[in-house]
């Protein structure tokens, strides 16, 4: 008589499968491409426009305090450049953990702010359904549908988690340079150490 099969995968099996998938490098490369292209595009759009207009977009969410003015002004000055730096870092595969963390923090903050703004608009009774809301989020993409924007952001959040936690270094510039010099590519953390 055969032993009883477990109904579902154990946590250990799942973790092993995730590690194997991560080791292929495919999830990381896809996540880097998505995040890098989107953030570089959005950053360049913002940088080519009047920075005051971006400051106005930040203010419209009513998330940051208007007093002192240095808060909104500093965020308007720094954020497009931070997006650009992080976008370039994930494309090149440089400082992936830090870039992933920063992008994750930004995305979570943007998504919560957009969610709150959409709920506020809907509560004003101007729209029949919440997904009917279309507005310029100030992200650098012009007017967008509210629900599409939220779903897109959730996808990017998932990509940022992959970038921040992946141990693969496939197609990463530092690893490629080390390989070219004939060196050994070191694992980014101790083998067997839990992620995070």
């Amino acid at each position: 008589m055969r032993p009883t099969e477990p109904e579902g995968m154990t946590a250990a099996t799942k973790a092993t499968l995730l590690r194997r998938l991560d080791a292929t490098g495919v999830p990381l490369v896809l996540a880097r491409l998505a995040l890098g292209v989107v953030f570089i595009y959005l950053a360049l759009n913002k940088l080519s426009a009047d920075p005051h207009v971006f400051a106005k977009s930040i203010k419209q969410y009513s998330v940051l305090p208007q007093d002192p003015p240095q808060i909104i002004n500093a965020v308007a000055i720094v954020m497009p450049w931070l997006e650009l730096v992080c976008g370039v870092a994930v494309i090149l595969g440089v400082m992936l953990r830090g870039a992933g963390l920063l992008l994750l923090v930004q995305l979570v903050a943007f998504t919560l702010a957009i969610y709150k703004y959409g709920i506020d608009l809907f509560n004003q009774g101007k729209f029949a359904a919440i997904c009917d809301i279309k507005f310029d989020c100030g992200c650098g993409t012009g007017e967008q549908w509210y629900c599409e924007k939220l779903l897109g952001n959730l996808g990017l959040i998932a990509a940022a988690v992959v970038v921040a936690r992946s141990r693969s270094r496939v197609l990463c510039l530092p690893a490629m340079l080390r390989r070219r010099r004939g060196g050994v590519v070191a694992a980014p953390a101790t083998v067997g150490q839990e992620l995070g």
Binding site: R97, G98, L102
Partner: peptide, 23 residues
């Protein structure tokens, strides 16, 4: 250095770079 500390160190470097470039 642990994974988490590397992550925070890298994030701080990138944040400093973005801030410096912006200003």
């Amino acid at each position: 250095m642990t994974w988490g500390r590397w992550m925070i160190l890298e994030a701080a470097i990138l944040l400093a770079a973005g801030t410096a470039a912006g200003f």
